[in-house]
Design a protein around this nucleic acid. Structure first.
Lengths: 199, 199
DNA sequence: CCTACCGATCGGTAGG
DNA sequence: CCTACCGATCGGTAGG
């Protein structure tokens, strides 16, 4: 009989990731200590080193899985047989929804990515770029003439992603506007601008 | 005869602020040590404590002066006798220009503000809110009907500021597009959307 | 000889 | 404004 992993292996690993994201987001990578993380996870510090070889490996796993999660949620959206406008709305709404339980990880990505060694950083950046390309293609399907002015496509995509990625700084969970309301507003604003005479 | 300050007092203080912003932005507040900062400034660690009572006081000064600088640059823009569209463009362009030599400080503000104690944080937030109000008023002058739907004005303002504040993550100094080019594009996109039928 | 940890402590370095 | 340090805590690892 083959040896098996502890039955709560995945559960514990997920607890480490979740608490690490929270601590990294709140105190920054250097400000969050392994001791604090251990306390938050109700395990010993040695246990953390059983799951991860060092602190950086935890940060990498947090950020990498975050990007994978976003990519998965976007890939699940069924865009076939939809109008270009609907495709944009569905993608924007899926991204904001995917951020919903990942605000900590989102903040850790923005604040702490540069801590990682170049090679790890590159692996994260590749995933980020896939998401950018995903949105760029939808945007171009909404304005095919962008194929003639490719130098405009990137700044326009980053303008939309700027709106969405900045969302966490001001959005109030218990305000009058839901995340889906904002998806609609951001899409209307962006598409209205994209189709105006000046762009 | 009254005692005078060292003739290079301001120069040295500015060097501390500039190098601190760079280190905080690159390594995060906790990851940037006072020893490293002293080395970067070519002074001893004790000298830093002559200018600032502790590490947090340096962070506060970096962030507070950054906001003051942004507010000053915006206040200098002459908006009188300008069309609403021109007012928005001038304000957006002034903000992006003000960010030009302050990318480090901008990143420190985004990453490390929450490190500060609540009272200091509040002082920074007050300044940020003044900037938001400044832009909200210009946006409303471009679409007076927003006075009837005030719940839309804030998310719209934050959408514009999201584009501008996210700019540092993708903008390349030596790319084909200048900051002023992007000011124009962001304004056209935003105004086009603002004036479209859906908003 | 493995996996899954624990209490205690290492050599260095942090802010002050 | 320096050298010389401190109490404490850091990330990481020892034996069992």
């Amino acid at each position: 009989m083959a040896r098996i992993r502890a039955q709560d292996y995945d559960e514990k690993r997920n607890s480490i990731l979740k608490n690490a994201a929270l601590l990294f987001a709140d105190k920054g990578f250097a400000g969050a200590s392994m001791s604090q993380l251990a306390t938050h996870c109700n395990v010993s510090k040695a246990t953390l080193y059983h799951y991860y070889s060092n602190k950086e490996a935890i940060l990498f796993d947090v950020l990498f899985k975050h990007i994978e999660h976003l990519k998965n949620d976007l890939a699940k959206v069924n865009l076939a047989d939809k109008s270009p406008e609907d495709r944009l709305f569905l993608a924007v709404d899926a991204l904001l929804k995917s951020y919903e339980d990942a605000d900590d990880t989102h903040r850790a990505l923005i604040n702490d990515l540069q801590i990682l060694p170049i090679e790890d950083r590159r692996k994260i950046k590749i995933g980020e770029r896939e998401i950018v390309v995903f949105f760029t293609e939808i945007i171009i399907s909404n304005k095919p003439s962008l194929n003639d002015t490719p130098e405009k496509a990137m700044p326009l995509t980053m303008s939309l992603l700027g709106m969405l990625n900045w969302h966490y700084t001001w959005f109030k969970q218990d305000g009058p506007m839901t995340r889906q309301d904002y998806s609609k507003l951001a899409c209307d604003l962006f598409l209205g601008g994209l189709n105006s005479s000046k762009i």
